[in-house]
Simulated scan of single mutants.
Amino acid sequence: MKINKILNNNTVLVIDDQGQEKIAMGKGIAFGRKVGELCEKSQIERLYTLENKGSDQLLESIPQDILYAADYIVRMVKEKLETEISDALFVAIADHLNGAVIRSKEGVSMKNFLLWDVKNIFREEFEICREAMTKVSEEMHIDFTEDEVGFIVLHIVSASLSNENSAAEVLLKLMEEILTVIKYSLKTSFDDDDIYFQRFKTHLKFFTERILTHKKLEGDLHNGHDSEMFEMMKNKYPESFETVEKVKDFIKKQYNYEISPDEQFYLMVHLSRIMKKSEVNKGEKGVL
């Protein structure tokens, strides 16, 4: 592999025998080297394929310590989740970490409106990421908020959506089918600019992924306390519950997937928020 660009003493961009550009990391890997020279394979500790154009320019602007922090997070995630994850995750996390560090130093915080969903739907990923980010915080002397942890989790989940059965067109088709069932059941339309609908669509994206891969959402609704919450939601928002029942029946019939109580609960929460916002908007228009 030939060195195509030197980012720092420990990170270089290389071109492999197939002409693919990759990130090679290793202690002192670039020391005394020049562009065009061969990279010693014995010095390469980690190798990431650059899947998106412009990633090389992006990486040039990211400090060495952040690149290593991103590498640490990716390695921990791959090790603990034991799943195939796109190499694009490394660049995505490095880029986000760089922005998070800048925001922290400037005293600027960025609100993650999907944090509730992330913590409750992707519990394992969130705990792994929080553990990794805690280590990174200690090394870099930067306090990362839970919002930032949540953003990293979203990058992780997105990078893991590479199953052949979950191609974009299949996901979109299923999402549209579910939205159609909901629209006819609730006799309503959706506002694409509404934050609650945007959050629901993000939830729906990962929900359809689980349906297509037959992966269950592990939760605690079998416990007494959460079971009471489910019943409370069911009684307080009967329209949302009935709609979720229709979605459940559709998914069972068409995809042979049984929606768990946890999935039903989260769907009810999202739909109740959307309906409540819709009623408020109608009331405001009525006043005008």
Rank of each mutant, 00 (worst) to 15 (best):
residue 282 K to A: 08
residue 181 V to S: 02
residue 77 V to L: 00
residue 232 M to C: 06
residue 11 T to K: 00
residue 234 K to L: 14
residue 112 N to I: 04
residue 66 I to N: 05
residue 250 F to L: 13
residue 269 V to W: 00
residue 271 L to H: 13
residue 112 N to M: 00
residue 170 V to F: 05
residue 106 E to D: 12
residue 160 S to N: 06
residue 152 I to K: 03
residue 104 S to Y: 01
residue 25 M to S: 06
residue 235 N to A: 08
residue 134 T to I: 10
residue 261 P to Y: 04
residue 206 F to C: 03
residue 185 S to A: 03
residue 105 K to H: 12
residue 209 E to A: 14
residue 252 K to Y: 09
residue 69 A to Y: 01
residue 266 Y to V: 06
residue 250 F to I: 07
residue 152 I to V: 15
residue 249 D to F: 02
residue 113 F to E: 08
residue 56 D to V: 15
residue 1 M to H: 07
residue 131 E to L: 14
residue 48 Y to M: 13
residue 251 I to C: 08
residue 243 T to F: 00
residue 192 D to P: 06
residue 240 S to L: 00
residue 268 M to G: 07
residue 146 E to Y: 08
residue 114 L to F: 08
residue 218 E to Q: 14
residue 144 F to I: 15
residue 129 C to H: 05
residue 88 A to S: 14
residue 158 S to R: 11
residue 65 D to E: 15
residue 40 E to G: 10
residue 216 K to F: 01
residue 105 K to D: 03
residue 152 I to A: 10
residue 50 L to D: 10
residue 184 Y to E: 09
residue 6 I to V: 15
residue 219 G to E: 07
residue 232 M to Q: 02
residue 55 S to R: 03
residue 251 I to K: 02
residue 175 M to K: 09
residue 231 E to N: 06
residue 85 I to C: 03
residue 234 K to R: 10
residue 115 L to G: 08
residue 257 Y to G: 05
residue 63 P to Q: 07
residue 169 E to H: 12
residue 261 P to T: 09
residue 128 I to V: 09
residue 15 I to E: 04
residue 159 A to I: 13
residue 155 H to V: 11
residue 118 V to L: 04
residue 284 E to I: 13
residue 87 D to L: 04
residue 25 M to Y: 00
residue 161 L to C: 05
residue 113 F to Q: 04
residue 73 I to A: 05
residue 143 D to Q: 12
residue 190 F to T: 10
residue 275 M to R: 14
residue 60 E to M: 15
residue 36 G to Q: 09
residue 130 R to W: 02
residue 205 K to F: 09
residue 244 V to E: 08
residue 26 G to K: 06
residue 237 Y to Q: 00
residue 107 G to L: 01
residue 32 G to E: 10
residue 266 Y to R: 04
residue 211 I to Q: 00
residue 142 I to E: 01
residue 5 K to N: 15
residue 117 D to P: 02
residue 159 A to Y: 07
residue 97 L to P: 10
residue 146 E to D: 14
residue 195 I to M: 02
residue 253 K to Y: 03
